[in-house]
Design a protein around this nucleic acid. Structure first.
Length: 117
DNA sequence: TTTACACACCGTCAAATTAG
DNA sequence: CTAATTTGACGGTGTGTAAA
């Protein structure tokens, strides 16, 4: 468990609020509106399997949970990728800022040397 | 062309966390 | 409390690439 805590929900803020990079606000995961998945694999292969699918509530539940799990894993990976991309962008921005600041420092140092030397 | 390797992506499981 | 959700870990698969 060396990754980020499980609380990140990236809420895109107004663009370019931190340089040219997309800023995100990290929030604790509030209720993600779970739209009910109405997709049911109705294969016309056999009536028997279809009736068991629709009639057995336990079966129904297991199928629903399995589908939700697959969907959740996909979403989790997508969020993680976005998070990593966000971090990489931030690294790039900070590296540029650092470069700029080092350049400014050098300029000021040179100016100081000219005046005093 | 074949082999070996790295990499990305996926589904699944299990544990932790959150919601009701 | 239970049910649902989130996420790390794992193993499997497909793809691109360099070396033999």
């Amino acid at each position: 468990m060396l990754m980020t805590p499980n609380i990140f929900v990236f809420v895109p803020l107004s663009p370019a609020s931190a340089g040219d990079m997309q800023a995100y606000q990290i929030r604790s995961s509030t209720t993600t509106s779970s739209l009910p998945q109405t997709v049911v694999m109705t294969s016309p292969v056999s009536i028997a399997s279809q009736t068991t699918k629709t009639d057995d509530p336990q079966m129904k539940r297991e199928i629903r949970l399995a589908k939700q799990q697959v969907k959740a894993a996909r979403e989790c990976r997508r969020k993680k990728k976005e998070y990593v991309k966000c971090l990489e962008n931030r690294v790039a921005v900070l590296e540029n800022q650092n470069k700029t600041l080092i350049g400014q420092l050098k300029t000021l140092k040179d100016l100081y040397c000219v005046k005093t030397g």
